[in-house]
C-alpha cells in the first residue's frame, strides 16, 4: 500500500521524540565525554583548561575510585544472584495453583511500586540500633545487638536487604512470565522417564528458562550499578565510605565538591561498564532469536 510510504510524514511523527532524545540524551552523552577531558570550571565554562586524559589518570590512581568500584561490586554480588534465585524460587511457588495466589502475587510485587525515599525511611527505623524491630528480634532470640546502618560492617547488608525487598517483585513477575511460556508437557515427559522434581527442574525448566534468567541478571546488574536513592537516604555513603558506590562517588564529586571534570570521567567509566553489559544482553538475546 502506497499511502503509508510517505517519508516526510514519518519523519514528522518521529521528530518530537527524536528531538527530546537528541537534546537530553545523545548530546549530553557526548558532552560528558568532552567535559571529562577538562579541568572544568563549574561556574564559568570559559575558564576550563584542557587536561587530556588527566582526569582518568587521577581517577585510576586514586584509591577512593577503586574502593567505590569494589563497593559497587559488593552491592551487585549481594543483591543480583540472591535476587535472581529468590525471585525464581518465589515464581516457582506462585505458578502453582492455590487459594489466594493472586493476592500473594500482588503482595510480593507491591514494594516495587513504592517510592524509594519513603519506604527506605521505614527500613531506617526497622534498622534503628536502639529501638528498631530487628534488634528487638535479636534481643528476643538472645543474640547480640547490631549497629546496622551505623556499622561499617552491617550498613551494606542493610541496604541490600532493603533493595531486595523493594525490587524482588519485578523479577518474580518476569520469571512468572517466562515460566508460563514453558510447556508443562516436557516436564511431565521427564517425570514419566523417572526424573524426580529436582532433576526435572535442573534438566528441563532451568535450561528452558535461561533467556529469562539472563535478562533478569543483566537488568538487575545494570539497576544495581545505578542504585542511588536508598544509599542517599539510608547511609549517605557511610559509615567510613562503607557504602560509597561508584554512582554515589559520582554524585559527591559532581554536586558536593564540584569536581566536574573528574566526576565526568567517573561517569564515562560507569557508562562503558553499563553499556558493555547492555550490549552483551542484546547480543545474547539475538543469538536466541536465531534458534527459534
Amino acid at each position: 500500500m502506497r499511502i503509508f510510504q510517505r517519508s516526510g510524514l514519518a519523519y514528522f511523527y518521529l521528530a518530537p521524540s527524536a528531538l527530546i532524545f537528541l537534546i537530553f540524551t545523545v548530546i549530553p552523552a557526548i558532552f560528558v565525554l568532552y567535559i571529562s577531558l577538562f579541568n572544568w570550571n563549574f561556574l564559568n565554562m570559559k575558564m576550563s583548561t584542557y587536561v587530556g586524559l588527566g582526569n582518568y589518570h587521577v581517577l585510576f590512581s586514586s584509591s577512593e575510585f577503586w574502593h567505590s568500584l569494589l563497593i559497587s561490586f559488593y552491592f551487585v554480588v549481594g543483591t543480583v544472584p540472591t535476587g535472581l534465585f529468590l525471585a525464581l524460587g518465589i515464581a516457582l511457588l506462585l505458578i502453582q495453583p492455590f487459594k489466594g495466589r493472586g493476592f500473594v502475587r500482588l503482595a510480593v510485587f507491591s514494594p516495587y511500586v513504592t517510592p524509594v525515599v519513603a519506604t527506605s525511611i521505614v527500613w531506617i527505623w526497622i534498622f534503628n540500633p536502639q529501638f528498631g524491630l530487628f534488634n528487638g528480634i535479636l534481643h528476643f532470640l538472645g543474640m547480640p545487638q547490631i549497629g546496622w546502618l551505623q556499622s561499617p560492617h552491617w550498613a551494606m547488608p542493610g541496604v541490600m536487604m532493603y533493595s531486595l525487598w523493594h525490587n524482588l517483585g519485578f523479577n518474580v513477575i518476569i520469571f512468572l512470565a517466562g515460566l508460563t511460556t514453558i510447556s508443562t508437557e516436557l516436564g511431565e515427559a521427564a517425570r514419566v522417564d523417572g526424573a524426580n522434581r529436582w532433576q526435572e527442574f535442573w534438566q528441563v525448566t532451568w535450561p528452558l528458562l535461561s533467556p529469562t534468567s539472563l535478562f533478569v541478571l543483566i537488568i538487575s546488574t545494570v539497576g544495581a550499578l545505578q542504585a542511588f536513592t536508598q544509599f542517599f537516604t539510608m547511609t549517605q555513603g557511610g559509615p567510613l565510605m562503607a557504602t560509597t558506590t561508584t554512582s554515589y562517588l559520582l554524585y559527591q564529586m559532581a554536586f558536593i565538591f564540584y569536581h566536574t571534570g573528574y566526576a565526568s570521567a567517573i561517569a564515562v567509566v560507569l557508562f562503558v561498564i553499563i553499556a558493555g553489559l547492555s550490549l552483551l544482553q542484546m547480543r545474547v538475546s539475538q543469538s536466541r532469536v536465531h534458534y527459534e
Binding site: 549530553p28 560528558v32 565526568s264
Partner: peptide
C-alpha cells in the same frame, strides 16, 4: 545510556 551519567551534562544544559 544510564541516567546517572547524564546528570552532569544535563545540569549544565
Amino acid at each position: 545510556i544510564p541516567q546517572t551519567v547524564l546528570l552532569i551534562p544535563d545540569y549544565i544544559i
